[in-house]
Design a protein around this nucleic acid. Sequence first.
RNA 1: GGGCGAAUAGCUCAGCCGGUUCAGAGCGCCUGCCUUACACGCAGGAAGUCGGGGGUUCGAAUCCCUCUUCGCCCACCA
Length: 896
Amino acid sequence: MSEPLAPQYNPQAIESDLYRFWNQRGVFAPDGPSDHPRAGPPYVVVMPPPNVTAVLHMGHGLNNTIQDVLVRFERMRGRAALWIPGTDHAGIATQNVVERLLAKEGLTRFDLGREAFTDRVWSHVRETGAVILRQLEALGCSADWSRAYFTFNDDLSRAVREAFVSLYEKGLIYRGHYIINWCPRCLTALSNEEAEKEEEEGRIWRLRYPLADGSGHIIVATTRPETILGDTGVAVHPDDERYRGLIGREVRLPLTDRLIPIVADDAVDPEFGTGAVKVTPAHDPLDFEIGRRHGLASIDVMTPEARMSLAAPERFQGLDRYEARRRVVDEFERLGLLEGVDHHRHAVGHCYRCDTVIEPRLSDQWFVKMAPLAQPALEAYRDGRLRFVPERRGDEYARWMENIRDWCISRQLWWGHRIPVWYCQNEGCARMTASRTDIERCPDCGGPVRQDEDVLDTWFSSQLVPFSSLGWPDRTRDLDRFYPGHTMVTAPEILFFWVARMVMAGIEFRGSIPFSTVYLHGTVRDTQHRKMSKSLGNGIDPLDVVGLYGADALRYTLVAGSAVGTDVILDPDDIESSFAPGRNFANKLWNAGRFILSNLEGPVRPLAGPHANVIRRDELGLADRWIIARCDATVAEVTEALERFRLNEAAAAAYRFVWSDLADWYIEQIKPRLTGEQPGGDVARAVAAQTFDVALRLLHPVMPFITEALWQRLPGRAKDDSISVAPWPRPDPRAADTAALERFGAVQELVTAVRALRGEYGVQPGQRVHIRVTGSGPAGVFDDERDTIQRLAKVAELRLDQPAGTQLGAHAVLEDGTGVFMPAEGAFDVGRETERLQKEEDRLYRAIEAQKKKLSNQQFTSRAPAEVVEREREKLRDWSEQLEELTRKRKGLVMA
RNA sequence: GGGCGAAUAGCUCAGCCGGUUCAGAGCGCCUGCCUUACACGCAGGAAGUCGGGGGUUCGAAUCCCUCUUCGCCCACCA
């Protein structure tokens, strides 16, 4: 031990130095430090790349803590643990952030132009990216920084091109003219997953469309009246008797002068609405299909911003879609064509980045044909190669795969991987070429080419990360060695965005699934169970917590609070009590360490091994055998919990061992041995050192800094030793010692019973009492351990196997029926205690009487609010119980 | 509309392939202690008809049904 340790754990003083030490020592590399190589099989975790939009929030704190726990655990178990960190360029999200920054300067991206804009984004992401990496370090993440990836780096961009062109060549990527989800604010297409459906209270209008020949009308129902301006037909079910005679006839579309046909189509549900559907092929996916089947024209009546376009009648042009909706309904009403309007709950799509209502829009986009990719990904789940924790999440995965739809991958953005397709400008040729490298000339006619303006969905690049981060498409050593990986730890929100697509991409490009287990952790929420978010202002910055209580306190709290499949609830208004468990425990560990270390100066005899002065088994006392057995049970518990991804259980088991067993009992038991008051000091030192060492290793994955700091100070450590690469403790079957557990357990029970008696009868804290016990414990343990019992319970004289006597005193009964008697004499004054209790009883009795009177008063019970009356009744009940308790206690003062 | 999950101490949650950690932990609360590792501590304590109702069983917080309330996922019924 170098310098004395402060009584209060100060994480700031050690964390950054230790992190630097680990990094320089090379413990994060899969093979470990060169002088401490690991030879075990690989264990690979790919970090879900945080978006470079902004700094990390508590959700990232949770996500990365869990990964780090698992990686550190497997690393200590000797595996070539590799945690690959990275960041995501986050196309649409990042572009939005930078556009908002520009807006503050009164600029739009169009003012800058594409190149200047992307330069601007680059400088932004370089800043946030650097901050993110520092944050991950502050959390203690043991990632291999030499392999850090960024989804928009040159290497990963090359992987994106390879993936795109490869799929294109297989016919799995195609360009098509379809209805897609369009965000009128972000001005881009979105995938189905990016259009978040939300149930909303809306309205459905029933509108009359007059028949062209004036012989009547047909009533259609719509939730989006503004799209009427783009109607090119009306559809009914072919078997619908009501409309049979109308099929093939025409209606005159109100507000326009168009004649549009009534067609019959199976897709129409006769039960819904009026059974007649207005068909707007340019603005609804179902209508698009119907229109195509019947050769109806598509009229796009909206601009990209969701204003009415030049294709709409002049008086509507330029109107916002909702304004247009009102105007259309107004006009129908004026014309007497509004049949009615009803409330209607329905799901409306919202942009997942800006929450704007999605507009289905007809446009040319790029798509991935998903069914062939989904099939083997579904297979992998069904045959058990891919499993989920918690298990039920697998059903969601399977359902999604079963109902997979083609993936729209083109985005009308500037920030992202440009689609690697070139169009020949030569009219006679017009060839479209997908290429892994930039091309200047059309490969067919040699004419000039123009690259597609669009970029790819950001998830197209992130789905490749499990192998692109290892060098793919090159066949690298890393790729051979570290693909496939093992555990994917992520939030359930991105199960479909990312996890499912990684599985498909892994199978498609590497022939195997990228990981075997998907661990989906919960969401960090506030006490009202709202997701922590910047916009709600209910977030807690993980770095604030690290600054206040240290990374270990943060990590412990997050791990302890996240049972499998549950959310983590934290109170942003009370950070201190939210993180108190972690902070308090770190401090406890620190002080237990301080105490043990201060007693380990000088040589410590080894507990095991081929040493001459090894401690013999028969030198161990009961407490020693007990703590060794408890330690061993804890090793088994923590190991099994981590293997089963029950991180909270692992943390709780280690916590119990350190606090309840080691600190509260063992350390208290050995104090006089350490001072030499009692024999067995060297054994106590050895056992304390050994069990504390094990406890530190068990806790290291969760609390890496403090455990390292303490572990390095244990005797026999070389300067460069690190707990990060110390072997994980193994349960030792020889340590099982049920006799010791039972016997020491009895000692604990007796000590606790005496302490309770002391407390209950007001014995002065320093006063030593006499105790008589009717038995002597399992195999006479009370006699064997009388020193321990007397000291921990402050007993002056312990008499065993004592029959009932004739003294005044207090008694208690142990679980097995053993009686414990504390004579009043010299401990407490029966008279005074009786008096005190009697007084208290009287006081309570009077209060109860008064309360009864109050409650029997009609004036009160009838006039006061019900909850007030209930509260008063509650009080009465409480007091009555207290009174009983006092009486019991007073009567406990007996002649034993 | 379909699927899934949750309701346990004031708060946040464990326990839930039925009966020896079965009613638990942490925070909060009450009482007493600065006992030479720790007041971010020590010792003791109060506190829950395990959401309501029904059923299966010798026995249910734990299994089944139902109701209520929350939450999540999915959905082209205009």
